[in-house]
């Protein structure tokens, strides 16, 4: 556990039938750190997140969490802090069961892990809602009564219920409007600074990843093509794919965007 590393993926491979979707992945996350995992659809970034969560397959390699190998172990069989690893998913509309109250949703992990009885778990609900800046009367309502941004706050509160050291966030702001997105990202940062939780932050959006990450890994075709400090990867990328990805995302400035477009073109022509 040198340098405060809490997650270490060592040569992780995953096959779906004949498809090789994760190829020799090596990645570390340190305590209290955000590692951004960026890539396009089919790059394997979600598969890697699910492998760490224990809800996706691992064909070979090790995933060390605070020293113990958790690769291929489903969440319910995990012990100690590894059992507390949580997730925030992309779509706030399908990540909360529509038939359950917010209280049921928030207490479910606590009760499942036998950390507390129902009454004690219910007592924690208010504090959890408080952490994500939702009113405490939200507990008795159903998910459909909340907006997308509010639902994502509920999902974050659920993830915090077990006081995890690591949360895997799979595109948690992609379904949100621009203004909501910024506020939810700020909430992520604020919670991290307060609790010291580490994030593995999966996203297709480089701007989002740059906003929240300390380090960034770029994935393509099941491989990590570049992994380094956020500033390094997003400002001075070494790999041509990272450069292409960076230039492809349009920026909200017509003059600079025109320059970037020309650069993207040049890159594309250069590659041919």
């Amino acid at each position: 556990m040198t340098d405060g590393v809490i997650v270490e993926c060592i040569d992780v491979n995953t096959h779906f039938g004949a498809l090789h979707v994760l190829k020799n992945i090596n990645l570390t996350v340190r305590a209290g750190e955000t590692v951004g995992l960026v890539g396009e659809s089919g790059s394997g970034k979600t598969t890697l997140g699910r492998a760490i969560l224990g809800i996706g397959p691992v064909s070979s390699g090790r995933i060390l969490f605070e020293g113990q190998d958790i690769a291929g172990i489903p969440p319910r069989d995990r012990k100690g802090n590894a059992a507390a690893i949580q997730a925030v998913f992309q779509d706030p509309y399908t990540s909360l069961n529509p038939s359950m109250t917010i209280e049921d949703i928030l207490t479910e992990p606590i009760i499942a892990r036998r950390q507390a009885g129902r009454a004690e778990a219910s007592a924690k609900v208010r504090a959890l809602l408080d952490q994500v800046a939702l009113p405490s009367d939200a507990a008795f309502r159903y998910p459909r009564e909340f907006s997308g941004g509010q639902r994502q706050r509920i999902a974050i509160a659920r993830a915090l219920a077990l006081e995890p050291h690591l949360i895997v966030c799979d595109e948690p702001v992609s379904a949100l409007d621009l203004s909501t997105q910024a506020r939810v990202l700020d909430l992520f940062v604020e919670i991290q600074e307060r609790t010291g939780v580490a994030y593995l932050f999966v996203s297709h959006d480089l701007a989002v990843v740059r906003h929240i990450s300390h380090r960034v890994a770029v994935m393509r075709g099941g491989e990590i093509v570049e992994f380094g400090d956020c500033d390094q990867v997003t400002a001075k990328p070494q790999h041509s794919y990272t450069r292409r990805l960076l230039l492809a995302a349009p920026v909200a400035d017509p003059v600079r965007q025109a320059e970037r477009r020309a650069a993207f073109h040049a890159l594309a022509v250069g590659e041919r």
């Binding site: 405060g4 590393v5 809490i6 340190r30 621009l178 910024a182 701007a207 989002v208 906003h211 380090r215």
Partner: peptide
């Protein structure tokens, strides 16, 4: 436009113990 995330300064990592 204020919510647009372009041009943010990257965060600085402060080591913590695991």
């Amino acid at each position: 436009l204020g919510a647009v995330l372009d041009d943010v300064t990257p965060r600085v990592y402060q080591p913590r113990s695991g």
